[in-house]
Design a protein around this nucleic acid. Structure first.
Lengths: 193, 193
DNA sequence: GTCTATACAGGGATAGAC
DNA sequence: GTCTATCCCTGTATAGAC
């Protein structure tokens, strides 16, 4: 924000690089060698900060979850209607796509399940629970303030919406075509007014 | 179907094994060594049938697409209402999940995009196009025969439905919990009668 | 069409010096 | 906290015998 540029510490630089790589290449698509080159240290040095790749992955997913949690909080602070909060959420997932080159970390990790440590899977579960809970409150509000049409059960709306957002990201990234994301989301957005 | 059990040729056995593995482990989660052990030949012998892993992947995706295409055709032959065809489609994706242990091949491949040959990506694109076109006809019918409620634009319904199906699979597989699939799909199914 | 043997690149991880 | 050097494993792919 308005702050002076801080010298980024190595640990944070590693997390940043790993997140970028994982979100664009998939969990199996990045290596210690890639990270080392990107950050500018030798790959052996990475183990000083993260003993294993599993530990790194858990840290990534944890940081990502807390980041989205505060993004949701900020949406709540900025917008007051269900409609506006839903639009903001759709915008967050749109931005995460980065023009069809990147996925939400949760989507990226979910797909590579075979290579994931159980602790990472636990973090993924926490992430979805957090999102589902928050999205349900958005529909709850949209129902009561009348800015989202035809809301029956907010909890089921949340489940459908999260799947829709994640599925639309997957399709749009596969063909690097943002129009696929917009088309998949358009009927949901039509329900706001 | 009623035919006697045919001795499966090696090439088909390889495709079967690769598809099982890719759908449960992800694209980067299976190797020639795994296939060799599963099929009962040496890994060098696989190259006789598929020169490279890219060639194998293209063959897998092609066969998968043709298989789903004929599944859609069979749904059309069996069911006559939009409602019943939509229910059958949701059933196909539910079965593909195999209790939360397996994904649609298209979802599995889409997520590992970094490691995919361009020919495989082209096949993925063909797959989604085919499905979108067919799902749109289902909504078209459901709209005209009145068995699916509140259908505005069948094309956008198709885009939303495919994303929903794929996203719901991803979530359900991540936690091996079929209830997540059912919950995500329940509002859509409520629209049928 | 399948085998053995091997090449070669890349992965994650460790030991020990500085 | 970072380095060099190295280990061991696994990945895809190839050569050539049978």
């Amino acid at each position: 924000m308005g702050a002076l540029a801080m010298p980024t510490d190595t640990k944070t630089a590693l997390l940043d690089s790993a997140e970028r790589a994982a979100r664009s290449q998939g969990f199996d698509g990045f290596s210690y060698a890639d990270l080392a080159e990107d950050v500018g240290i030798r790959k052996a040095s990475i183990h000083h900060h993260f003993a294993t790749k599993a530990a790194l992955s858990v840290a990534m997913m944890q940081r990502y979850r807390l980041g989205l949690e505060s993004a949701c909080q900020q949406i709540d602070d900025t917008y007051t209607s269900g409609r506006d909060r839903l639009l903001a959420l759709v915008g967050v997932y749109r931005d995460a796509l980065r023009g069809g080159k990147s996925l939400c970390l949760c989507v990226s990790f979910s797909a590579s399940r075979a290579s994931l440590h159980r602790d990472v899977i636990a973090e993924i579960k926490l992430f979805r629970l957090m999102m589902l809970k928050w999205i349900a409150t958005v529909f709850e509000l949209g129902k009561s303030d009348g800015t989202i049409r035809a809301v029956s059960d907010p909890e089921r709306e949340a489940a459908a919406t999260l799947s829709l957002l994640e599925g639309a990201q997957l399709a749009a990234r596969a063909e690097e075509d943002m129009a696929l994301y917009e088309k998949a989301l358009s009927l949901l957005l039509d329900r706001t007014h």
